[in-house]
Amino acid sequence: MKIRAFGCPETFLAHTKADLLKNEAVNSPPLGILYALRRNNGSADILLTAENESGFR
């Protein structure tokens, strides 16, 4: 498993959005947070994914 860190909300959202939207009802809270961070130029200090060969988890 690989941990990836992202430098800004826009980059993180670009990397994760398609997978998050596959189950939008469950993932709407994190999507909302990401949209708010992007809109407010929020800090990306906590934007991480855990990924394996199948994608992120």
Results as ranks from 00 to 15, higher is better:
residue 6 F to D: 07
residue 5 A to H: 13
residue 40 N to L: 12
residue 27 N to H: 14
residue 32 G to F: 03
residue 45 D to W: 14
residue 47 L to W: 07
residue 22 K to C: 10
residue 29 P to D: 11
residue 3 I to A: 15
residue 51 E to S: 15
residue 4 R to G: 01
residue 22 K to L: 15
residue 39 R to F: 11
residue 10 E to T: 02
residue 1 M to G: 07
residue 47 L to I: 09
residue 49 T to M: 12
residue 50 A to T: 03
residue 52 N to T: 08
residue 50 A to E: 03
residue 55 G to E: 04
residue 1 M to N: 02
residue 14 A to Y: 00
residue 24 E to K: 09
residue 8 C to G: 04
residue 36 A to R: 11
residue 19 D to I: 04
residue 17 K to R: 10
residue 4 R to H: 10
residue 55 G to N: 05
residue 42 G to L: 13
residue 42 G to V: 12
residue 32 G to W: 03
residue 1 M to A: 13
residue 19 D to H: 09
residue 32 G to P: 03
residue 46 I to W: 09
residue 54 S to L: 10
residue 48 L to S: 02
residue 55 G to R: 05
residue 4 R to Q: 08
residue 4 R to L: 04
residue 7 G to L: 03
residue 30 P to R: 07
residue 32 G to Y: 03
residue 15 H to V: 00
residue 19 D to N: 10
residue 23 N to Q: 14
residue 7 G to R: 05
residue 31 L to F: 06
residue 27 N to D: 05
residue 2 K to T: 01
residue 44 A to Y: 12
residue 45 D to N: 15
residue 40 N to T: 13
residue 40 N to F: 13
residue 39 R to W: 06
residue 33 I to F: 07
residue 16 T to S: 08
residue 22 K to P: 03
residue 21 L to D: 10
residue 1 M to P: 06
residue 15 H to A: 13
residue 49 T to A: 12
residue 13 L to S: 04
residue 5 A to P: 01
residue 53 E to V: 01
residue 11 T to W: 00
residue 10 E to L: 01
residue 44 A to D: 13
residue 35 Y to S: 10
residue 53 E to S: 04
residue 5 A to S: 15
residue 27 N to W: 11
residue 18 A to P: 00
residue 1 M to F: 02
residue 40 N to Q: 14
residue 50 A to C: 10
residue 40 N to E: 14
residue 11 T to A: 11
residue 7 G to C: 00
residue 5 A to L: 03
residue 7 G to P: 05
residue 8 C to K: 08
residue 38 R to H: 06
residue 53 E to N: 04
residue 44 A to H: 11
residue 21 L to I: 04
residue 54 S to F: 07
residue 54 S to A: 13
residue 11 T to D: 08
residue 45 D to Y: 15
residue 15 H to G: 00
residue 13 L to P: 00
residue 1 M to E: 02
residue 13 L to T: 04
residue 19 D to K: 14
residue 10 E to Q: 09
residue 28 S to D: 05
residue 49 T to E: 11
residue 9 P to C: 06
residue 29 P to G: 09
residue 40 N to W: 09
residue 1 M to T: 02
residue 55 G to Y: 01
residue 27 N to M: 11
residue 16 T to D: 02
residue 33 I to Q: 06
residue 46 I to H: 14
residue 49 T to H: 11
residue 33 I to V: 11
residue 41 N to L: 13
residue 47 L to Q: 11
residue 33 I to M: 09
residue 55 G to K: 05
residue 23 N to L: 08
residue 21 L to S: 07
residue 29 P to K: 12
residue 11 T to K: 05
residue 11 T to M: 00
residue 38 R to A: 12
residue 39 R to K: 15
residue 8 C to T: 06
residue 31 L to H: 09
residue 23 N to A: 13
residue 57 R to Q: 10
residue 10 E to V: 01
residue 2 K to C: 01
residue 48 L to F: 15
residue 36 A to Y: 04
residue 8 C to F: 00
residue 30 P to Q: 07
residue 23 N to P: 00
residue 2 K to D: 01
residue 34 L to G: 03
residue 51 E to Y: 01
residue 9 P to E: 06
residue 20 L to F: 08
residue 25 A to M: 12
